[in-house]
Design a protein around this nucleic acid. Structure first.
Lengths: 115, 115
DNA sequence: TTAATATGCAACCTAGAGGTTGCATAAAAT
DNA sequence: ATTTTATGCAACCTCTAGGTTGCATATTAA
């Protein structure tokens, strides 16, 4: 809650594995691709066009929800799932950190070789 | 092999799940964090400081290697693992695509509400 | 030549992922 | 009042991820 700005360093690196894990499945990547493009989808809508069972899709959605990548809200007899960009923004920060570290390592190596 | 430049669209979206999956584990995230900061590490070096067995660490390294995130090369009696930034650059592209889709969805919604 | 290191490989174990079927129930449509 | 439609929940199944122990073997160091 403190130090709001420039939280780019992976202080909460430990909490990112679940987000990566949630994206580590083709079915879920497809769901994310759908959900990030349009407004809320119901489970049935997300199931249409998939070879999987509604229950299987539901399980995948729960995984994404646990990682915070999507949120659900009941509306009448259907429950709508909506994309949330925050967790993905979070892991992007982490990946940037990794890339940066790597670049610095290369720089150090280069200047070492040159001297 | 064709269309080299601007391959930012997730044409090979299907092949990215393994990379995400490889990063979906705290132990492996820690290994990546180590490996991206310095040059090659041997398995024993990577094992020191971990509560896990050398064999367990080895398995994790093989997972990372299968995803292309690290490469290994035998050097005498030890095998050195080195970071490779490409797969991570690839999933960053994918995440950018997702974020962009979401922003566009928001824009469409906004202009729809305003009209 | 011996002892110490660094790995590889295989067998084994447990918990959880990913799917399915079946049944119950709330809401919406006829 | 009935019949669809959309979900939730639970039981069950198979396969694999993540770990461990034990043993064999190639390299180095003493």
């Amino acid at each position: 809650m403190s130090q709001k700005h420039r939280s780019a360093r992976p202080v909460d690196r430990h909490s990112r594995a679940p987000v990566f894990a949630a994206l580590g499945d083709d079915t879920r990547l497809a769901l994310v691709a759908k959900l990030c493009g349009r407004r809320p989808y119901s489970i049935s809508q997300l199931t249409r066009g998939s070879k999987l069972t509604r229950q299987a899709i539901t399980k995948h959605l729960r995984v994404l929800e646990s990682a915070g990548i999507v949120h659900s809200a009941r509306a009448g007899r259907e429950s709508r799932f909506e994309f949330d960009p925050q967790p993905i923004a979070g892991i992007k920060e982490y990946l940037d950190f990794v890339s940066e570290q790597w670049d610095q390592a290369l720089s150090r190596l280069k200047s070492f070789v040159e001297n």
